[in-house]
Computed example of a mutant assay.
Amino acid sequence: MRLRKKWWARPELEESVFFVSDAKQLKGKWNEKFKNNNDIYLELGCGRGGFVSQAAVKYPNKNFVAVDLKDEVLVYVLRKIEEIEVENIRLTAMNIMGINEVFDKGEVKRIFINFCNPWPKERHKKRRLTHTKFLTYYKEFIEQGTQIWFKTDDDELFEESIEYFKESGFELKYLTRDLHNDDFEDNIVTEYEAKFTERGIKIKFLIAELL
C-alpha cells in the first residue's frame, strides 16, 4: 500500500534536533552529532520506530541511527521518541542503496534489519536488504567483528539470506527459525513481530558477524 504524501511531514522533521536532513555530511562525524563517543547502532528500514525507540531506552549508552525512505513514516518515529524523551536516536530519510556514503569505516558497530520487504520475485531479489549486493555496501563501513542482526517472518527470505551472508564473508553466530520458543534473551519485539506472532507465524532470526 502506497503512503499518501503528507506535505507537513518534512517541515516537522526538520524542526527537530533528532532529524538529519543530509546524512552524508556527517560521514566520520556522527559522534559529534551525538556529543559523545558511544557505539553507533544502525537500523535499516525502521518503520514507525517500535524497535529503535525500545532499543534506545534499553541501551542508553548506545547511539542509534534509524533510516527509512519516507518522511511520512519517519514523522511518526519522531513523535514516538519525543514522547519517550530519549536523546540517543537520530533519524534520516534516504534510499538505503546510498548507505555506504553515510558512515566511515568502523563508525557503525552493529546493524539491525527487522522485517524488511522480502521481494519474492526473482527479478526483484537484489532489492533485499540482506542480498549480497547490499552486504557489499555495508562492508564498506563496517569492520571485522561487526554484527548484523536480522529478523523476518518470511521463510524463503530467511533461507536465502543465510546463503547471502555466507557468500559475503560473514559467520553465523546465532540462528533460530522459531525465535519466541528459543532461549535468546535479548529480543526486542517490533510491531510487525507482535502481529505475526499473534497469527501463529514463527519468527526467524540470525546474527551474522563479519570475518
Rank of each mutant, 00 (worst) to 15 (best):
P11D: 11
P11A: 10
P11V: 11
E12I: 09
L13I: 08
L13E: 04
E14Y: 08
S16L: 13
S16A: 15
S16T: 14
S16W: 10
V17G: 07
F19S: 01
V20D: 02
S21A: 14
D22E: 11
A23M: 14
A23C: 14
Q25V: 11
K27L: 07
G28M: 10
K29F: 11
W30C: 01
W30P: 00
N31K: 15
E32P: 07
E32Y: 13
E32G: 13
K33T: 04
K33A: 13
N37L: 13
N37E: 15
N38W: 12
N38F: 14
Y41V: 05
Y41S: 06
L42P: 05
E43T: 03
E43A: 04
L44R: 00
L44N: 00
G45R: 02
G45N: 05
G47R: 03
R48G: 01
G50L: 02
F51V: 05
S53W: 11
V57W: 10
K58D: 13
Y59E: 13
N61T: 14
K62P: 07
N63E: 08
N63H: 11
V65F: 01
V67T: 08
V67K: 04
D68R: 01
D68P: 08
L69Q: 05
L69K: 03
K70A: 06
E72W: 03
E72R: 04
V73D: 00
V73M: 00
V77H: 01
L78M: 12
L78I: 10
K80W: 09
K80E: 13
E82D: 08
E83F: 15
I84M: 07
I84F: 06
V86W: 14
E87H: 14
L91E: 06
T92A: 04
A93P: 06
A93Y: 02
A93W: 00
N95R: 12
I96M: 11
M97I: 07
G98M: 10
I99G: 05
N100M: 13
E101L: 09
E101K: 12
E101D: 15
E101M: 11
